[in-house]
Amino acid sequence: MKLLVFGKTGQVARELARIAPDATFLGREDADLTNPAACAAAIAATDAHAVINAAAWTAVDKAETEEAAATLVNGDAPTAMARAAAARGLPFLHISTDYVFDGSGDRPFAPDHPAAPLNAYGRSKLAGEQGIRAAGGNHLILRTSWVVSAHGANFVKTMLRLGAERDSLAVVADQIGGPTPAAAVAQALVAAARALTRGAPGGTHHFSGRPDTSWAGFARAIMAEAGFPCRIDGIPTSDYPTPARRPLNSRLDCSAFTTAFGIPRPDWRPGLATIVKELHP
């Protein structure tokens, strides 16, 4: 199975390169997502059997003041990709986010729960989802949450840096979700891509790590894994204001994905151990 992957340096793209080194990876220099037509042209010219979009605008707070730019990257570009893939009869797999929901309640969100994003980033990702569905091809929209790895900028790397420098940290304790190793997302995408090339239906699915926890709880696990004595003090979201509102509830119901593809929710704790070992051998 030949894969065409949009993205080269992001967390999931880096993990895809580890498990699918023969895939073709397109960085910004090859297919800039601010130019949807160029992205579509790359798909029109490919000899791949499936297309994965692992590139995105991920600067959540910056999107509040640059929503049009975020929507171009997260909305218009994936839409153009999906249309081009549909025209070629190629499965198209795309990563989305829990931020399409409003974070209300305390129950896991099912894939068919009504979307109601709280911020510009969430709206931009929802625009991409809507465009992909409208394109009419066989697609998989895989919503995930709290992605972490040894690459790029993410919560684990931030906590390790701060935990090595400080005796205590204040971390939000009322946002709940499932930390998800990027390696697990990559493995799920490759397995799903193989299924879709064999005719399996796609759709919109959820995939996040287990068990659900708070950012503060996750931070404590990171400190313990790294052997840092840094104390984590839980605080409410109201004590840590950000330009973009964050959902309090990021729990995702992943059961449909497990049923459809035989892939269970990954336990993030072994994944965390692997990440910490890679960063601090």
Score class of each variant (00 low, 15 high):
Ala170Ile: 01
Arg88Ser: 00
Ala110His: 14
Lys277Pro: 00
Gly152Glu: 12
Ala153Asn: 15
Lys2Tyr: 07
Ala85Gln: 03
Val73Arg: 13
Tyr240Trp: 06
Leu142His: 10
Ala115Tyr: 14
Thr258Leu: 03
Leu33His: 15
Gly103Val: 08
Arg143Asn: 11
Gly122Ile: 13
His113Asn: 15
Glu15Pro: 05
Pro266Arg: 04
Ala110Leu: 15
Cys39Thr: 12
Leu126His: 10
Ala193Asp: 01
Ala127Met: 09
Leu118Met: 07
Thr213Ser: 12
Val190Tyr: 08
Cys230Met: 00
Ile222Lys: 07
Ser214Gly: 11
Ala200Thr: 14
Pro264Arg: 13
Cys254Arg: 02
Ala134Pro: 03
Ile263Asn: 01
Ala23Arg: 01
Phe6Met: 11
Gly202Lys: 06
Leu189Cys: 09
Ile132Glu: 04
Ala256Lys: 03
Ser208Asn: 09
Thr46Ser: 15
Asp239Ser: 12
Leu279Ser: 10
Thr71Val: 09
Ile263His: 05
Lys125Leu: 13
Glu278Asn: 12
Arg14Gln: 14
Ala42Val: 13
Ala164Trp: 02
Cys230Asp: 01
Arg161Val: 10
Thr34Asn: 14
Ala86Asp: 04
Ala273Tyr: 00
Lys157Ser: 12
Ala188Glu: 00
Ala244Tyr: 02
Leu272Phe: 02
Thr97Trp: 04
Pro91Arg: 05
His49Ile: 02
Ser104Tyr: 04
Leu196Tyr: 08
Ala273Val: 00
Val148Lys: 05
Glu29Thr: 15
Ala273Glu: 04
Leu4Gly: 10
Glu129Asn: 12
Asp98Gly: 13
Ala195Asn: 06
Gly75Ala: 14
Arg28Cys: 13
Ser145Phe: 09
Gly105His: 09
Phe218Asn: 04
Glu29Gly: 15
His151Thr: 12
Thr274Gly: 03
Glu64Val: 07
Thr158Phe: 14
Ala82Trp: 00
Ala226Glu: 05
Ile43Ser: 12
Glu66Leu: 11
Asp233Thr: 11
Arg123Val: 08
Leu142Ile: 07
Leu196Thr: 10
Pro270Ser: 09
Gly103Arg: 05
Ala48Ile: 08
Leu93Lys: 02
Ala59Cys: 04
Ser96Leu: 01
Pro243Gly: 04
Phe6Asp: 10
Ala200Asp: 07
Ala86Arg: 04
Leu126Glu: 08
Ile222Thr: 12
Ala226Pro: 00
Gly128Gln: 06
Asn35Ser: 15
Asp253Phe: 05
Arg246Cys: 04
Phe25Leu: 08
Pro236Ile: 02
Asp267Ala: 02
Gly128Cys: 10
Ala55Asp: 14
Ala164Glu: 07
Leu160Tyr: 05
His205Trp: 08
Gly163Gln: 07
Pro108Lys: 00
Gly75Ser: 11
Ser149Arg: 09
Gly199Leu: 09
Gln11Phe: 00
Pro264Asp: 00
Leu189Val: 07
Leu16Pro: 04
Asp174Glu: 06
Asn53Ile: 10
Leu118Glu: 08
Ala191Met: 06
Lys2Cys: 07
Ile95Arg: 05
Ala115Leu: 08
Gln130Phe: 01
Ala170Glu: 15
His205Phe: 15
Pro241His: 00
Ala186Lys: 00
Val100Pro: 05
Thr9Leu: 09
Ser250Ile: 01
Gly178Asn: 05
Phe92Lys: 01
Leu169Met: 15
Leu162Asn: 11
Ala63Thr: 11
Thr144Trp: 04
Ala273Lys: 10
Ala150Lys: 08
Phe257Met: 01
Pro36Ile: 10
Gly122Val: 13
Lys125Thr: 14
Gly89Ser: 03
Lys125Trp: 09
Val5Ile: 15
Pro91Lys: 05
Thr24Ala: 13
Asp233Gln: 13
